[in-house]
Structure formats: structure tokens, C-alpha cells
């Protein structure tokens, strides 16, 4: 018996295959697509390079205290101190606040649209939610300060009166305006659309047969939701939530309008009338900033950028890990 590998015939030469575009229009198309892709990556790289270049001096001078300290004085040219601790923490606190408020609303809206509404109502609801995303940030900020702040301050007062024994709902200063709680609501309004639309997309891709299987086993709608729909879509929903979180962290103008910026760090007193936000701080200080201060503000922007990149990367990892059954 002769085996295939013992054959004495020479291996034929490799032939040319048409894997790469060879028609002229294909080559042009390929070139344009590649240029766009390289360009997008290049722009991000250039932005990062510019930020690093501008931030270098501040970061070197201020050291770790730039991130962890709580002082900002540009008055004395001999001894300028730039530290963004309360702003960085404030950005995170407001973003978490917003996400915690937005997630239940978004999931409920997505569930309603996908599983309860007739197709006509579903279309209307989808349009309304998408419209919410189209409202300019500045308009939400104006609405936030003019209309929503008094309402939310009242809610905060009620929370304080009834749940004030929890550290979370302490309020010593007596002012309920300008708090991370209110800024959190504003952020929630702005990220509900993105989380709703990601969640709706995930729900719509669920295998209806799997949901029918639960029903056929005698499950109620609520237990089907809790034990089948949510676990099956959790990875994708977390991805949507992190996208929302990224947006919440970067939100500038709307928060600038409703938040009372303070360099005294506010750890968890969400209904206390002071807080921080890197993006709002940049807006607030930029106009009157000295050249040194501008560099420090750009460094603050760099920190925000890096955190947002980390969150996006985390989103990708979680989405991939949480749904191993999806290829």
C-alpha cells in the first residue's frame, strides 16, 4: 500500500487566486475603504498624541496629585496647583447615578416595545425614544436648570426626609439644588435612548423559540423575563450600558448647567448641592484660563479620554465573554 505522502510526483506550483481586487473599480473601492479605516485610526492617534504633548508638562509637574488631589489655584504664577480629584470622582459618581436611573427605564421601554406593544405602538414608541436622543445637549441643560431642577430637588428632599439615615441621602448644607443626583437624572435622560436601542436590538435577536419554550413550560411573563430573557441578553445589555456610561462620562454642557461645581470632594452624598465633573470643569474654566491652566485642562481631558477608552474596551470584553454561545 502506498500512502499519499510518499508520492514521488512533484507538488504543483501555487496558482494566482483572485482574493485581492483586480478590477479597476474594485481597486478604487478597496483603496477608498482602506484609506477611511486608516484615517479613522490615524485621527484617534493624532488626538491622543496632541493631548499627550499638551498635557506632558502639567502631568510631570503635578505628579500623581493631579489625579488624587483636591486643589486648583492658578493665581500664584510661582506655585500653580492643578488637581482634579473631585472632578474625576464627580464624573464617575454622576455617570453611575445616571446609569442606575437609566437602565431600568431603558430595559422596561425595550421590553415593552419588543414584547408587549402592537407593531404600530412599537413604531411610535421607538420613534419617540430616538427623538429623545436627537435633542441637543444644550436644550436638555436649559430644561434641566429651568424646569427639572426644582422638581428633582423636591424628590431629593423627600428622599432625605424618609431615607436620610442612609449615608447616601445625607444633606447637611440644606441645599438640594446643583447635586450629583440632579446631574445624574439629566445624564439618565440623555443615555436612555442608546441603552434602549441596544437592548431592543438584543431582545429582537433573541430566539423566539427559546421564549416560547419557557411559555410552553408554564412560565409566566415575568418569570420568563427574569429567568430567560434577561440572562440570555445580559452580555449585550451590559455592552449597551457601558456605551451609555461612556457617553455619560463625556457629557458636558447639560451637566454644566445643572451642577454646582465644587473642589471639596463629594464622595457619596448624591443629594448634597455640590459635585464635580471633568467635562463641566473644562467648560467652566476654559474661557478665563491662563496658558498654564489651559494645559492642565487639556490634561484633565486626556484623563477623561483614557477612562472612556478603558470603558469601551471593557464593554467589548464583557460582551464577548458573556455570550459564549454566540459565535
Amino acid at each position: 500500500m502506498s500512502s499519499v505522502s510518499e508520492s514521488s510526483k512533484p507538488v504543483p506550483a501555487k496558482r494566482k487566486l483572485a482574493a485581492k481586487p483586480h478590477l479597476v473599480q474594485d481597486k478604487v473601492f478597496f483603496g477608498v475603504a482602506r484609506a477611511a479605516a486608516v484615517g479613522a485610526v490615524g485621527i484617534v492617534g493624532l488626538i491622543l498624541a496632541y493631548l499627550l504633548f499638551m498635557s506632558w508638562e502639567t502631568l510631570a509637574k503635578q505628579g500623581f496629585n493631579f489625579i488624587f488631589g483636591s486643589q486648583w489655584t492658578a493665581a500664584d504664577p510661582e506655585n500653580m496647583i492643578f488637581q482634579i480629584g473631585p472632578m474625576l470622582w464627580g464624573s464617575l459618581l454622576i455617570a453611575f447615578n445616571g446609569v442606575i436611573l437609566a437602565v431600568p427605564m431603558a430595559i422596561a421601554a425595550a421590553y415593552f416595545i419588543e414584547f408587549l406593544a402592537t407593531s404600530r405602538i412599537a413604531k411610535i414608541a421607538t420613534t419617540v425614544v430616538d427623538l429623545l436622543a436627537a435633542i441637543p445637549s444644550i436644550v436638555i441643560g436649559l430644561w434641566g436648570v429651568g424646569v427639572f431642577t426644582p422638581v428633582a430637588a423636591h424628590w431629593a428632599e423627600l428622599l432625605n426626609q424618609n431615607l436620610g439615615f442612609l449615608p447616601l441621602f445625607k444633606n447637611e448644607a440644606g441645599s438640594f439644588v446643583g447635586s450629583p443626583f440632579i446631574a445624574g437624572w439629566i445624564v439618565a435622560v440623555m443615555i436612555v435612548p442608546i441603552i434602549t436601542s441596544v437592548t431592543r436590538e438584543i431582545f429582537s435577536q433573541l430566539d423566539r423559540d427559546v421564549i416560547n419554550a419557557a411559555t410552553a413550560l408554564g412560565a409566566s411573563r415575568s418569570s420568563t423575563f427574569m429567568k430567560v430573557i434577561l440572562p440570555t441578553s445580559s452580555g449585550g445589555i451590559v455592552g449597551g450600558v457601558l456605551l451609555g456610561l461612556g457617553r455619560a462620562l463625556g457629557e458636558t454642557v447639560a451637566i454644566f448647567f445643572v451642577l454646582n461645581l465644587s473642589f471639596e470632594i463629594n464622595w457619596v452624598d448624591v443629594i448634597e448641592g455640590r459635585g464635580g465633573s471633568i467635562a463641566s470643569m473644562i467648560v467652566a474654566f476654559f474661557g478665563a484660563a491662563t496658558p498654564e491652566e489651559v494645559k492642565a485642562l487639556i490634561a484633565a481631558g486626556l484623563v477623561l479620554f483614557v477612562i472612556t477608552l478603558l470603558i469601551n474596551w471593557l464593554a467589548a470584553v464583557i460582551v464577548a465573554k458573556a455570550q459564549p454561545w454566540r459565535k
Binding site: 419557557a214 413550560l217 408554564g218 412560565a219 409566566s220 418569570s223 420568563t224 429567568k227 430567560v228
Partner: peptide
Amino acid sequence: LSGLKLSG
């Protein structure tokens, strides 16, 4: 066991 869990 899913049916037992789902139907409580």
C-alpha cells in the same frame, strides 16, 4: 429543572 424553576 427549568420548567420547575420558571413555574415557581
